[in-house]
Every structure is written in structure tokens, then in C-alpha cells.
Design a protein around this nucleic acid. Structure first.
Lengths: 348, 348
DNA sequence: CTGAAAGCGCTTACAG
DNA sequence: CTGAAAGCGCTTACAG
């Protein structure tokens, strides 16, 4: 079961050096010898001890994935797609969920990765310069998904442009009172703060470009969940000037928005247009217009770039910046003519 | 950065043996020496090489989690809760997604875990006796979630009882024509087949106990997704005798069911009661009555049991069988009096 | 309580 | 192409 090189060497009548070379397909062994060694190894079910080769080579054959949250849809998607690429390349996947700041500090402080991984994938977590330095000091190549990381090869979406596109869609439909529901960082959360902020910027850009003033009460932030979305929408319903359309920074929040609107008897898209962000697998079911940002591709591409960093020494590729794409479904439409809204909006 | 025991030993003026003992908090070192060694280690930022200690001890400090699917809600939940327990105990988490039979064979065949993990968590994947034997031969303790595994300490839900409970709820509301939408195994899928089958059995039990005959066309199976649920419901709508209520074996499928019903203009729960299974985080938003089966608890408890198996030698605890619980929401109600359904059901 | 030494199972210059 | 030997960085009986 757990035989050693020595056993194979003895049976094959060669030295352990030769066994080692034969089994790893490195040059320096005659074809014949190699074949014989490999056959014997297979026969006795020999599989090299990882611990041994790790100690000897310094390489671990594992990649660490760091993520703030495993239970959200987004992370399942990127984890699955990145994991597939890594496994395909023969790497083990080591998973680190750093949900709160304490876990995050512990993770980055203790050089916890020395001897554990050959590289690090950071998902949706904006690493600080110090954190990146820590990893660099451990000689760990890094690839970052969803936020900017100078030095590390990264993949992300142009969230600002995506946000602007989403709002333009609403503007082009004729909406003039468009609200924004954004993701509020929990105080203790380690979630990357960049994409949410960029989406808000995109929203403001689009409104400004269309010549609309910024309306304070039209920008609300809540926790990134359906319940958060519900709460945010409820607040918008209490606005002095309620919007006719809302851009929601995540589909999960948008689901909550739809629920609140339904409960309030407000028709979508007749009385209120809603556009989400993610193209969550349930968005289709709920007929939600949304921005698709190639979630699976983000995961696989981040992994691919890390592997390139590890196996070649070509240096980091420039960041890959993806463009999100509008998916039109049934939750957006032109606003109802004012006539139809008179009773609801006293300012008509 | 990556100093060795020797460096610490030299600075502390003691032997490496003492350093090793001092740092691991094993007895046999004076308090004073221990303190001094620890201080020095901290000062120079020494962190023991994993590869070294793995080779010396044979322990890896890692747990492997095997799962058929990372992108489904259920797996994110159990992964997150199990991972938390493992990390808390100081173990690394190694992730293996074995999506198809080929990956599954490769995983179990190649004794891929030797030297990689101290134990294995198997999620929602019914291991064959041979597969369990393979792991046992590698001396790997196993804990199984969601299916029966003789020998391995396991956690699962009594799906048959849960299915019966769900259907009884419908029966007690007065329904007499109740359909079942189950999970169809993709040909190549490695998903555990036990829970789905048990839920069907529970459905049949409840109907039989209530004195109803089994209706072939009321049992349909589709892929476990919202789209699968949509398709299944569509088929039920073509039944010779359409049901007035349906028990759906997963919430994700139930979401699709709700969509189809809405599209068809069939009111829920007025014309059709729907009960799901999972208590998916979006079930609340969609006002779906469902069976909660303590998903997070399943994950953490499976992990806890594996740790017990590893750290104590008390042997496997008996399986933990959880009871699912009905969560009543707005998608179930008594059937409409026949009068109200006459046009829809010609057999009235 | 402390240390010298063997050993865990590999890999890799180096020499032949 | 092949082998003897050193070394990767720990841990752990064993002896003192």
C-alpha cells in the first residue's frame, strides 16, 4: 500500500535515483529501464509520498484559495470553475474562508501558507499592500479576482462601466427617476469593497451624463442578501420622490426588491423597473433583467493566470478586465405615462 | 522568513530537540526554556516547515472534502459550516470536486489521498463499499453526509419521514390529488442517489396510509434545477387528472415549478399548493412552504464527527439522523372547493 | 529537563 | 544512462 522508492528500486534492481527519475518522466533513464520501473511501481501500487517530495523539492502541488464567503452563489461559481482548472493541472485545492477581520489577520499574519501552497488565488477580497507583501515575502505568486492588486495578475470586471450601462438601459427606456441599491459592507466583513463602490460610480456617471442631479434619498445601501434588498426597496418606497426604476448591485438583493414590490402591490415592470447584477442562476426564473459578468470565466481565468505565473517565468500578464453584458428580461420597461401614476405620485 | 529549527536552536543555545518540544507545547521542557525558545521563534518569525513535520510524523493536518458539486446552494452551505469547524480545530481544508464518474474513479482509484489528508468528509455522494475499502486501506477515517456508509460515522436526514411529513401536510389540508416531483440523476452524475429515492418513498407511504392509490402520471423526475422543476411541472399540467398540490424534492426545482405555474396563470396556493425541500435561502423570499433539514448543522456535525474519529480512538459514533421540519409559508393552502375548479377539471 | 542521532521518503547535483 | 550520497526540516525514542 504505502511502499517506498526503496521497495521499487530493489524489485527493479536499480537505484532509488533511477526510480525517482523514471517515475517522474525526467530525462536520464533508458526507455527500457523506465518502462520496467513504471510497471513494477504500478504492480505493487506504489505512489510517491507527497511529504517526501515536498520536503525535497520545496514544491507542494497545492494552490490556496482565499475567499470571504463560501455560502454565496457567486463564490460557489468561481470556486467551481477555478477548482476545475487547478485540478486539471494536477494541483490540489486548499480552501481558506476568511469571513471576518480576525480570520483575515490570522491568515495573512502568520505566513500560514509557507510550505502549504505554491500559489494563492484571492477571490473578491481587496488585499492591502501589506498583505500582498506578506505573500510576496513567502515567494507566493498571487492571482486576484474581483479587485485590483498591483503586481499580482488579476481578473476583474469593469464595474463602473457595467453600472453605467445598466443605468443607461433604464435612461434609454425613458426613466428619469432612477434609484440605486448598493451593497453595504458589514463592519466586520472582509468582502472586497471595490466592485460595489464602482457600481455606484457608474450609476452616478450615467445620471450625470444624462443631465440629472444626484438625489440623496435615491442611493441606499444594505447587506448583500435578499432581505437586504427588501429593506432597501422599502426605504425607497418612503422617499419623497419615489423612483420609477432601480438598479440593484446584486441579483440576490434584487430578489428581495421584487418581493417587497410584490407585497406592496407595485407592478414590475409597469410601476417599477428593476435591473440586477450577476446573472444569478435564479434570475432567469424570476424574469429579472440583469448584468452578466461571466462569473465562471472569471474563476477559470484567474486560476489559469496563476498557473502561468507558477509554471513559466514570463512574469505577470496584464490584468484581464471583462465587460459585463446586459441580459434583458421582463423586469424592465418604459415608465408608465404620468397619467397612470397620478394617484401614486402627488408631485405630478 | 523561512528559518529552520537549527537557527532557533542556535540562538536559544539549546538543541533542536528542545526547540521542537518547546514549540509544540509537549511536556519535557522547563517553563523557562520553553518561554525563551518561543520568544526567539516569534522574534525571528520562525514557522515550522509543514513538509518537515509531515514527513516526520506522518500526519498532514489536512482534511479532504469530497463533493459532487460546488456550485449548488446546498454544497456551499455544508462546505462553509464544515470548513469552519475544521479550521477552528486547526486543520487545512482540501477540496475535491468529483463531478462525473471519471473524476470519481480517478479520485478513489489512485489512493490520491495518501500523504495529503488525515481524514475524509464525503458530501452527498453515496460511497460504494469498494470506495470505502480504498479509504480504509489508506487508514483514512471517513465521515459521510447525506448517505449511509457502514463503518464511517455519518450524518443524514431521515428523508423518507421528511417526505411523508411534507405530503401529510398536504393531505391534512384536504388535498386528494398530490403529485411528486423528484430529482433525476444525470447519467454521468456522481450525486448521492439515496435522499431523492427516500423522499419518493415517503411520498408513497403517506398516500398509501391515507388510502390513495398510486398514480403513475403524478410521479415525475427531472434534473435538480429550477429549469428541471419548470419542465416537471409542465408535464404535470398535461396529466389526465391534474393534481391540486405538488411535493417537490428540492427548493431549486420548486422555484421552477412556481415560475411555470405563474406563466400558466395558475394561482399558488389557490389553484395549486407547492411544498419544497431544503429551506433554501430564497425560499422565504418566494414564500415557499418547505422542509428545513438543518443544512448548516449537517455540515458542522459531519466535520465534528470526523475530528472525533481522528483525535480520539473511541471508534465511530452511531449515525446521526436528523429530522426535517416543516416551514409553513404561503405556497400551501386547502384546495379550492370543487365548484371553483370546475372549468379546469372536467372530471368534477 | 536536555541532547545526539536516527529516521521519515523523497530529489538532485556529482561522479562515473 | 546509472548510482552513492547528501540533504530537505522536522520529530522522537533513547540515553544521560
Amino acid at each position: 500500500m504505502s511502499s517506498t522508492v526503496d521497495a521499487v528500486a530493489e524489485l527493479a534492481g536499480v537505484s532509488v535515483s533511477t526510480v525517482s527519475r523514471a517515475l517522474r518522466n525526467v530525462p536520464g533513464v533508458s526507455l527500457e529501464t523506465r518502462k520496467r520501473v513504471q510497471d513494477i511501481a504500478r504492480d505493487i501500487g506504489y505512489v510517491p509520498s507527497l511529504a517526501g517530495s515536498r520536503l525535497a523539492t520545496g514544491r507542494t502541488g497545492a494552490i490556496a484559495i482565499v475567499t470571504p464567503n463560501l455560502s454565496k452563489w457567486f463564490f460557489g461559481q468561481v470556486l467551481a470553475s477555478a477548482g476545475r482548472v487547478l485540478r486539471e493541472a494536477g494541483f490540489d485545492v486548499l480552501l481558506y474562508e476568511v469571513a471576518d477581520t480576525r480570520a483575515r489577520e490570522r491568515f495573512f499574519a502568520g505566513s500560514s501558507l509557507t510550505g502549504r501552497a505554491d500559489g494563492v488565488l484571492i477571490f473578491a477580497l481587496q488585499p492591502t499592500p501589506e498583505e500582498l507583501a506578506t505573500l510576496a515575502a513567502q515567494n507566493l505568486p498571487v492571482s486576484v479576482l474581483g479587485s485590483e492588486a498591483p503586481g499580482g495578475s488579476g481578473v476583474r470586471v469593469d464595474d463602473q462601466t457595467a453600472g453605467r450601462a445598466a443605468v443607461r438601459h433604464l435612461l434609454n427606456l425613458g426613466h428619469e427617476r432612477i434609484a440605486f441599491i448598493g451593497i453595504r459592507q458589514a463592519a466586520d466583513s472582509t468582502l472586497g469593497g471595490v466592485p460595489p463602490a464602482s457600481r455606484l460610480r457608474g450609476y452616478r456617471d450615467a445620471l450625470a451624463e444624462a443631465g440629472f442631479d444626484r438625489v440623496q434619498e435615491h442611493e441606499v445601501h444594505e447587506e448583500n442578501s435578499a432581505n437586504g434588498g427588501s429593506a432597501a426597496m422599502a426605504r425607497l418606497l418612503c422617499a419623497e420622490v419615489p423612483p420609477t426604476a432601480v438598479f440593484v448591485a446584486s441579483d440576490e438583493m434584487a430578489f428581495g426588491v421584487l418581493r417587497t414590490l410584490k407585497a406592496a402591490g407595485i407592478e414590475v415592470p409597469g410601476d417599477m423597473s428593476v435591473i440586477g447584477f450577476d446573472n444569478h442562476e435564479l434570475a432567469e426564473i424570476l424574469d429579472l433583467t440583469t448584468m452578466d459578468h461571466s462569473v465562471a470565466l472569471q474563476g477559470s481565468e484567474t486560476a489559469r493566470r496563476l498557473l502561468a505565473l507558477i509554471t513559466s517565468d514570463a512574469g505577470a500578464e496584464p490584468d484581464l478586465v471583462l465587460t459585463a453584458q446586459l441580459i434583458v428580461r421582463g423586469s424592465t420597461a418604459p415608465p408608465r405615462p404620468l397619467r397612470g401614476r397620478q394617484t401614486a405620485t402627488p408631485l405630478a
